[in-house]
Design a protein around this nucleic acid. Structure first.
Lengths: 232, 232
DNA sequence: CGTGCCATTGACCATTATCAAACGACGTGG
DNA sequence: CCACGTCGTTTGATAATGGTCAATGGCACG
């Protein structure tokens, strides 16, 4: 493993507070792997053997049932995933695949549980991570239950613009079909929703989105901090 | 606080492993409160001052936005709630109200965070609790995204019958309107869905549900362990 | 008895999915 | 360099799903 990769992992809140020796145990047991675009890292229903840490690239999490599929989230580096399943040693509930060429650090689940039992600082960091994730998914469920797909799209545009520095214009970081699945809708529907938003000043040219009338968009979206604010 | 109440709390996985002294600190700082039916314990957006432990009764968790409301879950005793918000000292994302007359143990959030930092066993129990809750909500989101309301109802009936001992018949433990909101639908729609299920042998008389043809119901529901099995 | 609340039913509308076709960008092979 | 296929996107038509509004019936409680 390259020194810089180790440093990226060490800098994660999840690992930064733990004892040096314990961290080195984990790193020694782990290894780095690179994956091309669209490679399945694991399928729902499998028992995970490794805690995954995304160092570079991005990961898409999805789930499937009765022939239907949905995207639950995307992860950008740096960040750990499959934490809950690893800690509980239970089946993974989602499938994960690379959304672009990615680099992942794999740490044996056994080692993670081991250190978790011996390093209080690590245990606390795991708690913080899980609590944040838990809250994130509560927001996702609220978003899904309390909003129409058009409203979810409008809020996603506002939130993503915010994330990009509130420039009023940005490039969609994923394919539109992937965005549709993330928002819990079909690609056809996303197209039509974009068309509707054109009426209130949202310009879409290919992957580029421009907000011409933020007030109008916000009026439609009615963003709610308890759903949309990532800091809360 | 009555001794039996203290024992109920101590028996919870969340508290059973921690040091006696720490537990007694928490209990000394906390107190018991009884609430009648339909009392709001807290509103989304508030900063929680107490970790709540439900000893008796039941609690409904809901959320509201743009004038729409939805029920996210119910909790039966014994169980703790508002854990993630207490640990992170952040705003609560849901509202909680009693779904029947209930008894709740309130433990100051400050004390919880304090002990959490000093008692590794407690920290580990918090992790386990959060991980289980996290997985529960992932299942809820999958349930919502991958199924129609009729399918959610069919699976709820199967799961609840299972929980009641697979007797093929049970009484709905909550009002139908509450069940509708829990399943992410309107009461009117729930009525119609029950009517549809009558065609495949689901008898509904008032709050009593009888499954006459489990195979047919399962054929419609297509239960998925990664969504419906509470042990996974 | 009223009165109020829940459940049900009907009519209608909004939202979303499905199926099909056409379009357009892009890369490959002739 | 162009023809062609592939794949993502868009558009249209239609159907399924779910929500809204209104009216009615039943039941509990005062």
């Amino acid at each position: 493993m390259r020194v810089t990769d180790v440093e990226i992992v060490r800098a994660l809140p999840l690992f930064s507070g733990m004892q040096k020796a314990h961290f080195e145990t984990l790193i020694a047991a782990g290894y780095v792997q690179r994956f091309p675009h669209k490679v399945a890292l694991l399928h729902e229903g499998e028992k995970p053997n490794f805690l995954h840490v995304l160092v570079e690239g991005s990961i898409e999490f999805s789930s499937e049932s009765r022939g239907r599929e949905t995207t639950l989230s995307f992860l950008k580096p740096p960040g750990a995933f499959i934490l809950a399943a690893v800690i509980l040693d239970q089946l993974y509930l989602k499938s994960a695949r690379t959304a672009e060429a990615s680099m992942v650090v794999l740490i044996p689940a056994e080692a993670v549980r081991d250190v978790f039992d011996r390093d209080p600082a690590f245990a606390r960091a795991v708690v913080a991570e899980l609590a944040v994730r838990y809250r994130g998914i509560v927001k996702d469920l609220k978003n899904q239950r309390l909003r129409t797909s058009l409203e979810r799209l409008a809020n996603w545009i506002l939130a993503h613009d915010e994330e990009c520095g509130r420039l009023g214009s940005f490039t969609i970081p994923i394919e539109k079909r992937a965005l549709a699945h993330l928002l819990g809708m079909r690609p056809e529907n996303l197209s039509r929703s974009f068309a509707e938003l054109a009426d209130i000043g949202v310009e879409v040219r290919g992957p580029i989105i421009k907000i011409n009338d933020r007030a109008a968009l916000a009026e439609l979206a009615k963003p709610d901090p308890l759903i949309d604010d990532p800091r809360i």
